[in-house]
Write a protein that binds this DNA or RNA. Structure first.
Lengths: 132, 132
DNA sequence: CTAGACCTTCCACTACACTGGAAGGTCAAG
DNA sequence: CTTGACCTTCCAGTGTAGTGGAAGGTCTAG
């Protein structure tokens, strides 16, 4: 299967697949006599794996490490468990931060609706944003 | 006040202040005879404004627009209200996405603790990550 | 007079995951 | 034989918010 077909089958682009190869997520595939990349069928599963791992919030570098462990013949379970725990903590932290931002934005929009534009002065640039 | 003093007074760095100038958030300040930037006292308030607007989740580009409106002599209230509404929607959307990711990660770690490494096969790369 | 603290400009680089485009090669259909 | 789809490599750029460093100028204290 050539690169365009693999891209179409996995919902990616040829550019992305070459990028994954260069980034070490995909091994250099065999080539046709004409020099075209010729992927085996199981490359689809590998791209699918990359997509699910990305959806779980792993970076390409982390996914590359998981794949390297598997490619080395080891089941990557321990490593993955560790990664997942770290990411869960990270995501929870980011959610908490965003919730704080959300609360701040809500307070600011309340301020906005209660603020008479005429009372704004040049000195404070914008009363709405400096009220907190 | 020279750039180092302004940086110290606002908790930024000289690099950041020059960057803000180049990015259009700060007007080119007057210079001393020796060529040093010589900021008026109210620059401190402007930097403070930039920091609070950043804390509210606005990008430097958006802050630059708010400042430009104010610098043009208009109170930026209408613009700011619009920005805040947009950001609130955006932040709520990102929170929802992250919560979905968090739930996925939680499900994955549950899978991980219930998965026997011995049952992993090469074909599926990592049972934990492909189970969902 | 000199050390050193502070300032100047300019260029390059960070992380992340791609994306765009140029110049040219391969292959099947008409 | 040509057209057009598809492929190749390589280089460069996207956006965000700065950071790092080199080479050199300015100013103040001792």
């Amino acid at each position: 299967m050539r690169i365009g077909a693999l891209a179409a089958a996995t919902g990616t682009t040829t550019k992305t697949l070459r990028f994954y190869e260069q980034a070490g997520l995909l091994a250099d595939p065999p080539r046709t006599p004409g020099g075209y990349r010729d992927y085996p069928a199981h490359s689809q599963a590998r791209i699918g794996f990359i997509r699910s791992a990305q959806a779980a919030g792993l970076s390409l570098a982390e996914i590359r490490d998981v794949l390297a462990i598997r490619d080395g013949g080891q089941p990557p379970c321990g490593h993955v468990t560790e990664l997942l725990d770290r990411h869960l903590a990270d995501v929870e932290h980011r959610i908490a931060e965003l919730e704080a931002t959300r609360d701040m934005l809500r307070a600011l929009t309340r301020t906005a609706s209660a603020t008479d534009p005429a009372t704004c002065t040049e000195g404070d640039i914008c009363r709405i944003l400096t009220a907190h």
